[in-house]
């Protein structure tokens, strides 16, 4: 600091000071990802693990399956349907959280400054609360003997409990519930910066409320929408706990399918290949996101 520090020493110090963090991350987060990639091209071991022989079988099995009986090769419908279910549920989760989240973020941002912190705090509590506890809480609500069914039956609307638990709907409700705060927070940040004079200007030009929402508000808060969608979509796609607890071992998502390969399926290379696919999908979404959001920033 007392010395005139050039570009070079800044960089050296920057790297030096970051080294402990980087070493830790490479050791216990980024580095092992490379091992996953390596395992995906090995031959599967008898019950678990791999044999150190190169093999494309893991990757082959991501897309294709051999019939157990006549060895005919076909497209792996089951794998694709799990992928499709995951993508479908993740998109649905993103949409639900958006339709609930935008009004919520708007509501918070338009509160008087004094009470805004309180409302924001109400959103952050679930955000930091254990995902498992929240999944458990929603399970208690939708079980056959849960409060929802009990209330509906007492009110005479239904005579038999509705089976929600262990269905795709249960997984969807659960994910929308646990990821809602992830949508609200970035949307709030965007709405908070929003200049409400623009709405006034819109009304002055006889725009309808719908037009104002669509033409004025949404385009301006678009970065917040994209950030929120990414923040909800990515963890939904890799969700493990929520489908495991609410899906009853039958309605798998990619996360559970990967786990299956490392457990009962005893096919580590396939599990590793599936993990790599998931990782690639996430990276592509992130790249698209940064592209779109940086273009938006340039547009002003």
């Amino acid at each position: 600091m007392s010395k005139p520090s050039g570009q070079r020493s800044k960089g050296v110090n920057g790297w030096l000071l970051s080294t402990p963090a980087l070493v830790l991350l490479l050791l216990a987060a980024s580095g092992p990802l490379l091992i996953v990639a390596a395992y995906s091209v090995m031959e599967k071991g008898d019950y678990s693990g791999v044999r150190w022989v190169l093999s494309g079988e893991g990757w082959f099995r991501v897309l294709f399956e051999r019939d157990i009986f006549d060895q005919t090769v076909s497209l792996a419908d089951a794998n694709l349907s799990i992928f499709w279910r995951s993508v479908k549920l993740s998109i649905a989760t993103t949409l639900i959280t958006f339709f609930l989240g935008l009004p919520t973020a708007w509501f918070i941002a338009t509160r008087p400054a004094s009470s805004r912190a309180f409302w924001l705090f109400l959103i952050t509590i679930p955000f930091w609360t254990n995902l498992l506890i929240r999944t458990f809480a929603i399970m208690e609500v939708i079980r056959n003997q849960g409060i929802l069914n009990t209330a509906l039956m007492k009110s005479g609307l239904i005579s038999e409990p509705i089976q929600i638990l262990y269905t795709d709907t249960a997984v969807l409700i659960g994910m929308a519930y646990v990821y809602l705060p992830l949508m609200v927070l970035p949307l709030y940040a965007a709405v908070d910066r929003f200049d409400f004079k623009l709405i006034e200007a819109g009304y002055d030009l006889y725009a309808s409320r719908w037009q104002i929402l669509r033409r004025v508000i949404l385009p301006i808060i678009k970065p917040g929408i994209i950030a929120g969608s990414i923040l909800v979509f990515i963890p939904s796609l890799g969700a493990y706990v929520t489908p495991r607890v609410l899906g009853g071992g039958k309605n798998m998502m990619i996360g559970n399918f990967i786990e299956l390969q490392f457990g009962q399926g005893q096919n580590w290379p396939l599990g590793a290949a599936l993990s790599t696919v998931l990782l690639l999908v996430v990276l592509v979404s992130l790249v698209v996101y940064t592209r779109v959001s940086s273009r938006d920033n340039q547009d002003g």
Partner: peptide, 17 residues
Amino acid sequence: PQSATDLYTAIWTELLK
């Protein structure tokens, strides 16, 4: 035998997913 177990595991994995 291992050959039967392999068949069973394949059927089982197909069933689970």
